[in-house]
Design a protein around this nucleic acid. Sequence first.
DNA 1: AACTCATCCAACCGCCTTCCA
DNA 2: TTGGAAGGCGGTTGGATGAGT
Length: 269
Amino acid sequence: MVKKTESNFPPEKKVIRGAWTAEEDRKLAEYVKIHGDKKWRSLPANAGLNRCGKSCRLRWMNYLRPGIKRGNISEDEEDLIIRLHNLIGNRWSLIAGRLPGRTDNEIKNHWNIHLSKKSLTMNELNLKLNHKVETNVDCPSPSSSAISAPDMNWAYPDLKLEVGLDDSLFESEKPWSGPPGKDLGLEIDGFLEFSGGSNEFGMGDNNSYQMEEEGTFQDCLNEKLQESNGGFVLDREMMDSELDFDSLVRLLDHENDDSFHSFCLEYIT
DNA sequence: AACTCATCCAACCGCCTTCCA
DNA sequence: TTGGAAGGCGGTTGGATGAGT
């Protein structure tokens, strides 16, 4: 059987590969400016380029498109990338969507080169925390720690820690289209604060949740789910349903728990 | 100066999803 | 409902560049 490849962007005759020249960039930018960034298949011929449509699209999306931010990725951006990656994994386009001006390719490269080495597992983080507690050092700053919620195993619940979620992560362009009544209106602050004997999980400006007994992050959320009787999952206006479900499952560390999957899906669908 | 090695990042590749006739 | 076209995504590659010897 002949494997079908590149059916969507078949190679035009005498296709050039490799680095783009300034002249090619100019032609592409000029063409897209007039005709828009669609119809990539026919674009090369129309624009006078000996490139495949796919290559043109990539060049435009990653380099020529207006608003592309070039230059070093800031610490804040890095922090956001790490936290998003811990939350949703290698979904670069989703991550890029939260970083204006950055492309998925750029973030992917940056992650592979710089951040993948920095990212810590929760166990590694706990080891560091344990050391810090023993030596009376201040709590870790959120920006310096990549925290993976599913791996939570709090060795020192009196430490104040940021879990790695905040409102800005979920500023989705997609409006929530789920059923009414399931629009639960909860903003996930993303802060799990352990201080003293009580655990507070910040649920947004109007919805702070206190838990008297000692417990874990997932205890807090589970209890909130129960007491709200269907009135709480995540902020539907902020997230698309796929991310919502993934996030919740990952947050609650129930990735292999079928009954919990069903439970979540009842809210989401 | 010449060579090797490591790093970076633009570009490529193949697969998957969505769209539409 | 179906199949091809188009668009999108994530993994990988390879050339350019800089540091080290």
